[in-house]
């Protein structure tokens, strides 16, 4: 396993980035049990620094592979991937069951060698901001799904990377909690801008949160439509423009499958 160099960064840094995310004509296949499985073929995507790009597509269209390429966890077979340092936020919160909420968030710093107390001190203000105050010492099992997801998000932000790769971060939540956390994420990104690639199968979520929606074809995945959203925030799911865009995205998705 290649050793990853450890950045000395301790505080989340604002977008000082330069590239954003640039995926050009990328192909990637895996050796499956019955021959090679082609996850992506000729996939392209562009997220300028500070932009939120949502990727929607049917399940199994290579969305997760795309995020792993962006995070540098995989290399493309063909094409190029250029991205500022990215951190992955997986669908499941992956909180450590033995650690307190605060230590789970601070893991992002501990992973880079920051001491326990300094890491906790850096994480604590985020608990205030994200409505988690008072739950610092609770273990994940004692938190609601929405709170767990917020703790996971603090961990993601504390990683201090300019690019966030969010892999269906709300898919495991119930509808009401999902709306709540979506609104909260929109607020957070407004205050704390990052380059975001948000993978989702929820077209409405994509339209609500993103600057641009990329529709992917079924496997092997590639971008079949790119819809600029260009609506003022905050957006509501009942806004006429949001509804119209959602329909356009659904049509593109339907045409692709």
């Amino acid at each position: 396993m290649p050793e990853v160099t450890e950045a000395p960064v301790e505080e989340p840094r604002p977008v000082s980035a330069h590239i954003g995310v640039r995926v050009e004509n990328v192909s990637r296949s895996f050796a499956g049990r019955r021959g090679a499985v082609e996850a992506l073929r000729g996939m392209s995507l562009r997220a300028r620094p500070g932009e939120v790009v949502a990727v929607v597509g049917a399940s199994g269209c290579g969305k997760s592979t795309l995020l792993e390429l962006i995070c540098g966890l995989q290399q493309p077979d063909a094409g190029t991937v250029a991205a500022d340092p990215a951190v992955l936020m997986p669908q499941r919160d992956l909180l450590l069951p033995w650690a307190s909420a605060l230590d789970n968030a601070a893991l992002a710093l501990r992973a880079r060698g920051v001491g326990r107390e300094r890491a906790r001190a850096a994480a604590r203000p985020w608990f205030e901001r994200f409505g988690l105050a008072g739950f610092e010492s609770a273990r994940p099992a004692a938190l609601s799904g929405g709170m767990r997801q917020r703790v996971a998000f603090v961990r993601t932000l504390l990683a201090g990377k300019p690019v966030l790769a969010l892999d269906e971060p709300f898919a495991a939540l119930d509808a009401l909690t999902r709306q709540e956390v979506q609104a909260w994420l929109a607020q957070t990104l407004a205050a704390e801008p990052r380059t975001v690639v948000l993978v989702t199968h929820d077209v409405e979520e994509a339209v609500l949160l993103a600057d641009e929606v990329v529709v992917m074809s079924p496997r092997p995945g590639r971008a079949v439509a790119t819809l600029p959203v260009g609506l003022a925030r905050p957006r509501r799911r009942t806004d006429a423009a949001v509804v119209a865009l959602r329909e356009r995205a659904l049509q593109a998705l339907g045409a692709a499958t």
């Binding site: 396993m1 050793e3 990853v4 160099t5 450890e6 950045a7 792993e68 995070c71 540098g72 966890l73 990215a86 951190v87 992955l88 997986p90 992956l94 893991l107 992002a108 992973a111 880079r112 961990r155 990683a159 990377k161 790769a165």
Partner: peptide
């Protein structure tokens, strides 16, 4: 483990 890698954690 993948998450830890994107958090730049050493082995």
């Amino acid at each position: 483990r993948r998450l830890m890698r994107t958090l730049d954690a050493s082995r």
